[in-house]
Write a protein that binds this DNA or RNA. Sequence first.
DNA 1: TAAAAAAAGTTGCATATACAACTTTAACTC
DNA 2: GAGTTAAAGTTGTATATGCAACTTTTTTTA
Lengths: 135, 135
Amino acid sequence: MNTETYCIAGRLRMLARVISGRYNEAFTGEGVTFAQAGLLMHIFAQPGVRQAELSKRLQIEKSAMSRDVQLLQKNGWLTDNIRSGLYLTEEGRLLAKRCHKIWKALNQQVWAELGPDATLGLTVFSDNVITKLIS
Amino acid sequence: MNTETYCIAGRLRMLARVISGRYNEAFTGEGVTFAQAGLLMHIFAQPGVRQAELSKRLQIEKSAMSRDVQLLQKNGWLTDNIRSGLYLTEEGRLLAKRCHKIWKALNQQVWAELGPDATLGLTVFSDNVITKLIS
DNA sequence: TAAAAAAAGTTGCATATACAACTTTAACTC
DNA sequence: GAGTTAAAGTTGTATATGCAACTTTTTTTA
């Protein structure tokens, strides 16, 4: 039946590029990328979270996470004790809240644009990857 | 019904990281990344293809494509007239063939590991993104 | 066909990402 | 509690990626 077995990795990377572009656009007004906004929102939701924890949850290599975090700090959104848990500055908290508003509206819109079949499809795929491929 | 609307972009990026890691591993023996192997295979399948064509097909920004292509060339896998169509050198062709063998086995294995529900889910999602979100 | 417009490709700059090696911090064991 | 081990975090190096501005090539049109 699977006569056409396209490249799973290639397809995922393409989809990530396309969707990331869409999300990045939405955050240009705030001067952040989607990746940065995402981290800010995670830290907002869980103040004091460790890099290692985010690293596992988001499946980002620890050295990449280290640099992402340093970038947030350089921009004044994190307090200076990043080795013992991540905390937003006041400016960081305000930005995180604005990002969340943007994110919520956009994510719902994309969800709606793609429709239930598509989003259910991604959910099923995602759940399978998480249970079968991530230790 | 959609009580939990997770972040589509975040999830896709995570999945791309995880699956890319898996594919990258498979190509370390050949000294190429999955991204490079993928380009080589595309060019092998369509000698003379233009950067702009690959750029559209893979949804990679043209400047990124330009650099990816230059890297392949620097490694001796592309002939020197990259501005008028991409052609593999003999070494490039041999490498592309080896990569295809690796890719085919791995892609089938991942397809099998994830199972039909998952892969169908990705297909449905992917088709929807392509028809609804890509101009 | 020459000029103008559009498309293709490149380069400067910046972020996102990974692997390997290293340093620092935390935990465990005796 | 000192020493060892493990976990966390950082830095060097390299690829992958995007945006903006620029150059080159191709196509259109007058």
